[in-house]
Design a protein around this nucleic acid. Sequence first.
DNA 1: TACAATGAACGAAACGTTTCGTTTATGCAA
DNA 2: TTGCATAAACGAAACGTTTCGTTCATTGTA
Lengths: 334, 334
Amino acid sequence: MPATIVDIKEKTGLSLATISKYLNGGNVLPENKVKIEAAIKELHYEVNEIARGLVTNKTRTVGILVFSVVSPFTGMILHHVGSALRKSGYGMLIVDSCDDEEIERKNVKYLISKKVDGIIVLPVASKGDFLAPAKNAGIPIVLIDRSLSDIQYDCVRIDNRKATYNAMKEVLTRNHKKVAVIASEREYTGRERFNGFMDAMRNAGLDVPVEYQVRGTHSIATGYNGMKKLMTLKDRPTAVFMSNYEITLGAMLSMNEEGFQCPDDVSLIGFDDQLFFHLLQPQIYMVEQPMKAMGERAVELLLGRISGAVDEDPMEIALGTKLQRGTSIKTLDP
Amino acid sequence: MPATIVDIKEKTGLSLATISKYLNGGNVLPENKVKIEAAIKELHYEVNEIARGLVTNKTRTVGILVFSVVSPFTGMILHHVGSALRKSGYGMLIVDSCDDEEIERKNVKYLISKKVDGIIVLPVASKGDFLAPAKNAGIPIVLIDRSLSDIQYDCVRIDNRKATYNAMKEVLTRNHKKVAVIASEREYTGRERFNGFMDAMRNAGLDVPVEYQVRGTHSIATGYNGMKKLMTLKDRPTAVFMSNYEITLGAMLSMNEEGFQCPDDVSLIGFDDQLFFHLLQPQIYMVEQPMKAMGERAVELLLGRISGAVDEDPMEIALGTKLQRGTSIKTLDP
DNA sequence: TACAATGAACGAAACGTTTCGTTTATGCAA
DNA sequence: TTGCATAAACGAAACGTTTCGTTCATTGTA
């Protein structure tokens, strides 16, 4: 029903090749250009991307493989990645791994079958074998936020360990000695941040007793239960580092519930500013990730790989973070 | 490079038509079936969806047009819609309207150019003209959550007005007379819920002074500022209804900040349970939407339209809600 | 004036499927 | 045996583009 390039051919008397050339930005005589444009307007012609894809072997669509589509972190990344892609004329086919490695594995195959031009991954698995089918199919891959332990892919993220290490200085220079951590231990970021925390403590010559090391998952429940547990210890910490948004949220809920005050009862420092912590009183010290830049750099890199403009070995891009200062850290007597 | 149906043809000696028939579930002789399956395995053949799409004029992909991809409500819908679609072999091409009607309008055209088989919409606009191009192209459309004012499309949602009306009974039977509302006025749901609130008050013979009617946007800021304003009135309300998740979150932050206690200082009732309110103390009364059912029904309906199994006039499906009872409403003396 | 060089237009083949109308093979009844 | 009905296989066309190698026209140069 919709007009095709053949209709344009008949209306203008030109050949398919010439019209195709025009459509793809090639040079045609001014008079022909006018004819073609008139015909296009009159017939409401639009190129059929499917037919085009069949011959070019490109879909102008990239697959986005996310560990979970309900996380606010994911939502924000999707927002920025989506804008950047659209600006370049690409669409995004999103698949949700539901925090399940088996689903993630299937999703990769699905994206391949959909012939996406590239894949952006926020992985759930820590190892990279699930991406092998895509790699073998020659599909460019860029990771965001989380590196893989056994194989290197292009990855845009922050230096989690260092960022945590630096953030911890804010606590340590205020003479805190008894500092606890609540961190996720299942993904890359949680482990790195935990390590950064331990680095800082070790470097300050401070010990971290096991009951101060709360490990869990990337969830509100981990923060909630973790904080509850910490605050019922006989020997409470004077400060707590929380490794991500969900954990921070959970921890704060628990504090509100128990009536603990920050920073009077305990000092807090967290990760992943999601805007709304700005509204909180007290304002929490927070490591802010450059979400927009991460999304944009990842897209830029992926499109570079797709076009062939980038052909070096896989690279890890670590972007800078910013510490949102607040009022949540108390200065103790030396 | 990847194997095609022609390779299978040559390996088996059968015709393209027969192999295609097999691939699409048709009957072939057992011996041929064996031959074909062997060849497929040996050559790692997978059907090229692009080529198939060119002749069938189907992409097995549906477009998802969301008002904002960063909202947790959207994330949850995406999760359920995505699962349901995948179960039926469909993928989702997601486009983000960034709460902007102009972008939304462009996105519709983009989805059409991508030849999606159907579109699921969480609209930002209140009027439906932006969907006209898709309708004219014969692409089935299903709305979720928000109806349009001027034209009827298939829509899966709840009865916001009634749900609010019923929820308000919990407040009114506890003898509250001075009840305020914080509601978004820009989208369908906010307006309906506001109306439901006013219905309930009117029906109880109660007046709602204008300073008790806070209208704003679907945002944390509206809830935060709204609650702050309400609690500084000389004549404070004894209860507040909050029309959605973000507003509820903002309102609670403000209360925590000011040190107001719920339900001692003010009773609260909200909308959109997002799991994590379960963790809160006190537990807030919340109208819970059937997110999973909404996503699944919408997909079911859309696929029905696509296949032609459903061909009645557009329908509005209003699913039932559930009131999560809590401890956030105080019983006043009569 | 002839010839080379340049640039635009052209025709046909190709991309990998599905589908339509026809032919071939099979089984059964007359 | 012949004829007929049924089921499976077949060949060819079609889907709407891009692209390759070639032809044609124009301009500039010797």
